[in-house]
Computed example of a mutant assay.
Amino acid sequence: MSKEFAFTIKSICFDENYHPSNNTRITTNFANLARGASRQENLRNTLQMINNRFNSLAHWDNPNADRYALELEIISVDIDVEGKGETFPTIEILKTNILDRKTNKRIDGIVGNNFSSYVRDYDFSVLLLEHNKDQATFSTPENYGELHGKIFQSFVNSETYSNNFNKAPVICLSVSTTKTYHRTANQHPILGVEYEQDAYSLTDEYFAKMGLEVRYFMPANSVAPLAFYFRGDLLNDYTDLELISTISTMESFQKIYRPEIYNANSPAGKCYQPSLKHQDYSLTRIVYDREERSQLAVKQGKFTEEQFIKRYQNILDQWAANYAVV
């Protein structure tokens, strides 16, 4: 048996008054939106986009398209490797909460949605780049993603998780620009039309090591499919409103982060390959610095290498070797 690491969580509201804390991941998309002269307008417009999209999807008994509003919490997860009370910030995810203005009820949404991780920054922006430097063909290092995947599963299986969240996480990301997606005949009333691909992307394989399956759906009035990473049964484990909370939140973020794909002026066809070089798209009014985020990911990954990977190398190696995936 492998000794379990201790996890602690903290939450902060993501609203128009949000200010990134000093110890937040500087590469997180939330921090990027909440900096600069346009920060409050950015946040206000982002939240309005999310609410508008939610109400367009939850249209029943909602004649004025204003019945619901989403409240978002950024959940930060810290890990204590040695059991001495000294923690390292590990994961940031997003929790949705649904406010029903008609009944004045607050309904739990889904935890997960966006996903940020220090170790993932290290894996993709440091380890993978160094492994492929001056190599003729691309490859991944031995046991690539294993440590990160086991840390994530350890957190989801922990008492800390079960004491705070009722359902397994769902993470919703952009589809890959390296793969081609094919529309199927399968259609879900909320998630929309399902797409499939012939081979998993590097991100799909990485998330599989986190114990997550993936399916791709393009909701009604969307222009590109989203990738949904989940445990269990995506179509039956969650209510319509829970699924809508994830779609509306993450599609809105993707319109900001990747407008070439998610704010394109025409929808994906039966055979679809996403591209960030696509020119027929519209920009949102929200300022987002994609280049800055990429540069900071390398800096954040190197910080993780020094302060987490190298510092706890022996403990992490032994723990990962003995950790039994459930």
Results as ranks from 00 to 15, higher is better:
D78W: 04
I79Q: 01
I79G: 00
E82D: 15
G83M: 10
K84V: 09
K84C: 13
E86V: 08
F88H: 07
P89T: 05
I91N: 00
I91L: 14
E92A: 01
E92K: 04
E92C: 08
I93A: 14
I98P: 00
I98S: 00
D100A: 00
R101S: 13
R101D: 06
N104S: 13
G112S: 13
N114L: 10
N114R: 10
Y118G: 12
V119P: 00
V119D: 02
V119C: 03
Y122N: 04
Y122S: 05
F124G: 02
F124I: 12
L127S: 04
L127V: 03
L128T: 00
L128Q: 06
E130T: 11
N132H: 07
K133T: 14
K133Q: 15
Q135R: 14
Q135V: 09
A136F: 14
T140K: 10
P141V: 05
P141G: 05
E142W: 09
N143T: 08
N143A: 14
N143G: 10
E146V: 15
E146L: 14
L147Q: 05
L147R: 03
L147H: 07
G149R: 01
F152G: 01
S154N: 02
V156L: 03
N157A: 14
N157C: 15
N157Y: 11
Y161K: 03
Y161A: 07
N163C: 13
N163F: 05
N164A: 05
F165A: 03
N166T: 11
N166G: 14
K167L: 13
P169R: 04
V170M: 05
V170S: 01
C172L: 06
S174N: 15
V175G: 00
S176N: 07
S176Y: 06
T180K: 13
H182Y: 15
H182I: 14
A185V: 11
N186V: 09
N186G: 00
Q187P: 01
Q187Y: 12
H188Y: 07
P189R: 06
G192A: 03
V193Y: 01
V193G: 00
E194I: 03
Y195T: 01
E196H: 10
Q197A: 08
